[in-house]
């Protein structure tokens, strides 16, 4: 799909020292009696870029949403930046400050301008003066290449532009970790590239990223590790060339054949 992206893998920024950025330990989750996450164990090192893929309903979105507790797991432990996710509101606030999230459907605030979307959290959470927050926001809007749209409202922007604003909005909190939940699935094909380019730029700067996506080109270029999930389990994981070229399980082989046919 994105041939331009696939020109060689960018340098890894993994730092093995220190605690892992994210650690999932035998995490289980049920919706009613439906078992959606089964004994998920996963470690993401600081600076590591993990791409999660798998068929729909495999639990990959649920897993990523558990990491900043938009969903609650019922068994096991999740540690983010060394802090365990519990019901404790203070630790949850601290974690959410460090973890940025980008959604499939953008979820920009329609009643606020692009600039206000970006400054809201720095002002109310980081307690930044408005002027500083606006300067910060403009800096990130320049980085996602839409500073000229700052005074517009989300409804006036294209899908790709909106998703880039959503990335800038998350970055304005200066997070240590970024989570992407199918960031390009709701976009028209011609807009996917502009969003992926932004994400590649972020990866080059050494951001710790967990990305749920079907963009295999992106995975090959950026990922340090690809995690394949199916039916709530981590079936296989490894470097992209190993996962894509030498799959060891039938489920992954089938998935890859389907996704290649799909393209």
């Amino acid at each position: 799909m994105s041939a331009a992206l696939a020109e060689g893998h960018i340098a890894s920024a993994v730092r093995a020292d220190g605690p892992p950025a994210i650690q999932l330990d035998k995490v289980n989750k049920w919706y009613g009696s439906m078992h959606v996450l089964r004994d998920i164990s996963l470690q993401v090192a600081t600076g590591e870029r993990v791409v999660v893929c798998g068929p729909s309903g495999s639990g990959k979105s649920t897993m990523i949403r558990c990491i900043n507790r938009l969903e609650q797991h019922q068994e096991g432990r999740i540690l983010v930046d060394g802090t365990e996710l519990t019901d404790d509101v203070r630790s949850l606030d601290a974690i959410r400050r460090e973890v940025g999230m980008v959604f499939q459907s953008f979820n920009l605030f329609p009643h606020l301008t692009i600039l206000e979307n970006c400054t809201l959290a720095p002002i109310w959470v980081r307690r930044m003066p408005k002027k500083d927050a606006e300067e910060l926001a403009m800096e990130y809007l320049r980085r996602v290449k839409i500073p000229e749209q700052a005074k517009k409202y989300p409804g006036q922007l294209s899908g790709g532009q909106q998703q880039r604003v959503a990335i800038a909005r998350a970055l304005c909190m200066k997070p240590k970790i970024m989570l992407f939940d199918e960031p390009t699935s709701a976009l028209d094909p011609e807009m996917i590239k502009e969003v992926l380019d932004t994400m590649v730029g972020l990866a080059e700067d050494g951001m710790t990223m967990v990305v749920v996506t079907h963009e295999m080109g992106f995975a090959q270029q950026v990922a340090d590790r690809v995690v394949f999930m199916d039916r709530g389990e981590v079936v296989e994981q490894g470097p992209p060339e190993q996962v894509f070229n030498r799959p060891s399980t039938d489920r992954l082989k089938l998935f890859l054949s389907q996704i290649l046919r799909g393209h």
């Binding site: 068929p55 998935f255 389907q258 799909g262």
Partner: peptide, 8 residues
């Protein structure tokens, strides 16, 4: 970009 289902 639709999701792929492995089905049965």
């Amino acid at each position: 970009m639709s999701d792929i289902s492995l089905g049965s």
